[in-house]
Amino acid sequence: MSETRESVLITRLVLDVLKPHQPDIVEFSKRLAGVKGVRRVDSSVLEMDAETETVKLIIDGNDLDVEVIGETIKALGGAIHSVDATVVEKIERKR
């Protein structure tokens, strides 16, 4: 008799991030795309200020690690203002 194992995986995160103008969203997104589990990063600037910009990040992946993504954003000088949406999937695997 085969046993099934359930895993809950985060496959999409929509984040509202405040960041300095540099690194720009191209470099910022490329660095985030380098995080393990991230497949796609969709970034758009929502608001520009003198020193900062508010960016909406839609991060897709197979198994997103929120903590690592948060650390990467912090390491690039950004701050997560809010997690606006998320997609979580339950995967059943036969053992």
Binding site: K19, P20, A50, G77, A79
Partner: peptide, 16 residues
């Protein structure tokens, strides 16, 4: 310091 004030975040040990 200017960026820290603007983002209200400590930028120690960051890319900056």
């Amino acid at each position: 310091r200017r960026l820290e004030l603007a983002t209200l975040t400590a930028l120690r040990n960051t890319l900056h």
